[in-house]
Design a protein around this nucleic acid. Structure first.
Length: 490
DNA sequence: TGGACCTTTGT
DNA sequence: CAAAGGTCC
């Protein structure tokens, strides 16, 4: 252990269970931490301003936590990834660092960025150490008997669990305090403002205690009901931990560790809430593993190649109606308005709205992927891409293309009384339950004759359904069938 | 290699 | 209960 090292934070904004940070502390006597905001790159990647705000707030917390360990945090904005090598080499020069430590990000541009940093450091004799950290089981460690990546979730989960059983789960403690405070002079003042649109993320606490408590409370009191409640958007039945996983405020290992502590039956009891939540953690791993195994997923390409032949509809009008929550399908519109207003959307609704965009409006899933990414506080490339390709029937283990969600039925099943709809679509607040999912069928006569409703505004302002689901479904399935047939002929 | 199995369904 | 297949052992 000697000399100074740089710990470079990216999507791992925590001290606990941070592989690179721990390795850096073990190998170096002194440490300097750095975060490099890249607004142009974020813009190109459609990173949501609300997520950037969460990161900004979290950095202030991180800075204090690091200061307690005598580790200064340097935050220096650069434009995009191409400026990163210079920023890192400069900091190495200023601090006299001989090594740089970080945790891998699996997306293409991020991989390329790291390669360029490594190449820039190498002639200066500065070591670059990049660790697998963001998954519980590292990409490449779970493969079929033929040595290939799994393409189907269930066998993946099985192999993933058996690997985990062999390897065990370890949650690493935070690093020990650095002895000398000599480098603390490198520390800037407050975290500088980022050159990025400002959207307030204040509803999501970023202090250590609050995040930890959210995980504990969920596993202690809510996870048991997770499988029954998670599909009901009017119930607060999900963990709401995704923003913290996406930014690395929390590690997936921490989540699993707490889950196993409070709900050990999650491994053996398929009917338990714990099992269902564990599945969600494994889906996160599945999509990351796939991204590593199939780099084309990171290049805007569908997994199933023939779906390149699908003739998506070019319609700004439809796309905007979907984005703004004015499709005339209440559950879709409520969900899209929730996303726009809060930066978050319930998972069931992500499926419903994704199915609606791709199957009812026949709009390219990539337009939806982009919109979600640019508005979600928990935007994560692999999960977002995986989810969209699943809904659009273009991905691994995706739903078959002839399976199309019925937005009305989905609304009736998961928001039977329209509680969620009424929260977000105010035009419909007075529509009786019976017509809440089909307000266009609410008879004129009923509106006028019902004395209770006499003084109530009717849903004049609410759009009629922009497409007829039944007809749209038939049309989409045919377009997919033709696309496949075209590929089969070659 | 044949057969079991497949997140989230529609009709 | 179908299903316009595919994956995995």
């Amino acid at each position: 252990m000697s000399g100074t090292g740089i710990i470079w934070f990216r999507a791992d904004l925590r001290l606990v269970d941070n592989t690179a940070l721990l390795a850096a502390r073990e190998q170096c006597e002194n440490l300097v931490a750095v975060y490099l905001p890249t607004p142009m790159q974020w813009h190109e990647h459609h990173v949501a301003p609300i997520q950037v705000d969460l990161i900004h707030r979290r950095l202030a917390v991180l800075k204090d936590l690091l200061a307690d360990l005598n580790i200064p945090l340097v935050v220096r904005e650069v434009a995009d990834f191409s400026d990163v090598p210079l920023a890192i080499t400069q900091l190495a020069g200023e601090s006299g660092a001989h090594s740089v430590f970080c945790n891998k990000q699996y997306e293409n541009d991020e991989q390329l960025r790291d390669k360029n940093v490594k190449n820039a450091l190498s002639p200066l004799n500065i070591q670059f150490h990049c660790f697998d950290d963001s998954c519980i089981v590292n990409p490449g460690d779970v493969v079929t008997q033929a040595g290939e990546a799994f393409k189907v979730f269930t066998p993946f989960r099985k192999a993933w669990l058996s690997y985990l059983y062999r390897a065990g789960l370890q949650v690493q403690p935070p690093p020990a305090k650095v002895d000398s405070n000599a480098l603390m002079t490198l520390s800037d003042g407050d975290i500088p403002t980022f050159t990025y649109p400002k959207v307030n993320s204040i509803d999501w606490p970023v202090d250590e205690e609050a995040i930890r408590q959210r995980l504990l409370t969920f596993c202690e009191t809510k996870v048991a009901l997770y499988h029954q409640q998670r599909d009901i958007p009017s119930i607060d039945g999900t963990s709401c931990l995704s923003p913290y996983l996406a930014t690395g405020c929390l590690s997936a290992r921490q989540c699993l560790s707490v889950l196993l502590n409070y709900a050990p039956n999650c491994l053996i009891s398929p009917d338990s809430g714990g099992f269902a939540w564990l599945n969600e953690l494994v889906w996160r791993e599945f999509y990351r593993h796939l991204l590593v195994a199939y780099p084309k997923l990171g290049r805007n390409q569908p997994f199933v190649s023939w779906t390149n032949n699908v003739l998506w509809r070019e319609s700004d009008e439809y796309l905007q109606a979907w984005q703004q929550g004015r499709t005339g399908y209440p559950i879709v519109d409520a969900a899209m308005r929730q996303l726009k207003a809060t930066g978050w959307m319930h998972n069931r609704l992500r499926m419903i709205t994704a199915s609606f965009l791709t199957k009812d409006l026949l709009i390219d899933w990539r337009a939806g992927e982009r919109w979600f990414m640019s508005h979600l506080i928990d935007g994560d490339f692999a999960s977002n891409n995986g989810g969209w390709q699943w809904a659009a029937s273009t991905g691994t283990d995706a739903q078959p293309y002839f399976r199309v969600f019925n937005p009305t039925t989905q609304g009736e099943r998961f928001d039977p009384k329209g509680e969620f709809i009424r929260t977000w679509v105010h035009e419909l607040k007075d529509v009786p339950d019976k017509y809440i999912h089909t307000p266009h069928l609410w008879p004129e006569a009923a509106r006028n004759n019902d004395p209770v409703l006499f003084d109530s505004p009717v849903c004049l302002d609410y759009p009629l359904p922009i497409v007829d689901h039944k007809a749209a479904r038939v049309c989409t399935i045919e377009v997919f069938r033709i696309a496949k047939e075209m590929a089969d002929r070659i």
